[in-house]
Amino acid sequence: MQVLSVRNLNRRFGAITVAQDLSFDAAMGECLGIIGPNGAGKTSIFNMLTGNLKPQDGTITLDGRDVTGASPHSRTLAGLGRTYQVPQPFGQLTAYENVLAAAAFGGKAGDGAEARARSVLDRTGLAARADKPAGSLPLLDRKRLELARAMALQPRLLLLDEIAGGLTEAEVGELVALIRELKPDVAMVWIEHVTHALSAVADRILAINFGAEIASGLPDAVMRDPAVLEIYMGAVIDVPA
């Protein structure tokens, strides 16, 4: 079942194009990877999916509903969850309260928000820091908190923006294991520069440059695509941004 369908998405900032006639889908249980050099437009595409940035043309469909003009919070209530590339926690609230707020307001209503928040903090390795103000957490924990907050929403569509950047090899391994656990219950779009992590999870990869698709398909095929190799120039591909 298609959860996300994007058709002919277009957006420019003056001379910079961040989306040029882009179309892609993500089905339940599936992970679409997005790669592209710095400034290619990846985060801007997410911002259009979440409603923080208006596309100049194109449609975004979530679970069969056209949400192209919908507000960010109503898309969340319709099943969308996102992480920010640069962590954006509620700084004065504790890690637990950050996740609790997501559990209490996002997606599925009802009680059990406290229990859900605790379970998500456990799974993301934040249990020991649960009662610390989010603003005082080190960067790595703030990145974990991004994932925890999105997980607490129990989204149908999960947008991950470079959550593996800056992690050690062992931490990347743990993250990949966690994302694999989540995958069956969600449609996922994952922007990532750590391509070996992405290849381990993604079913398909979309490579973009200057907002335009340069390759798409199975991970191995996209990674070996001459147009992709040319942009990344070989070894540069695995350096986290």
Partner: peptide, 15 residues
Amino acid sequence: AAVRDNEDTAASIGI
């Protein structure tokens, strides 16, 4: 508190 601390994130969790 969520809106006070970060309005974009607040919207992103459905507020």
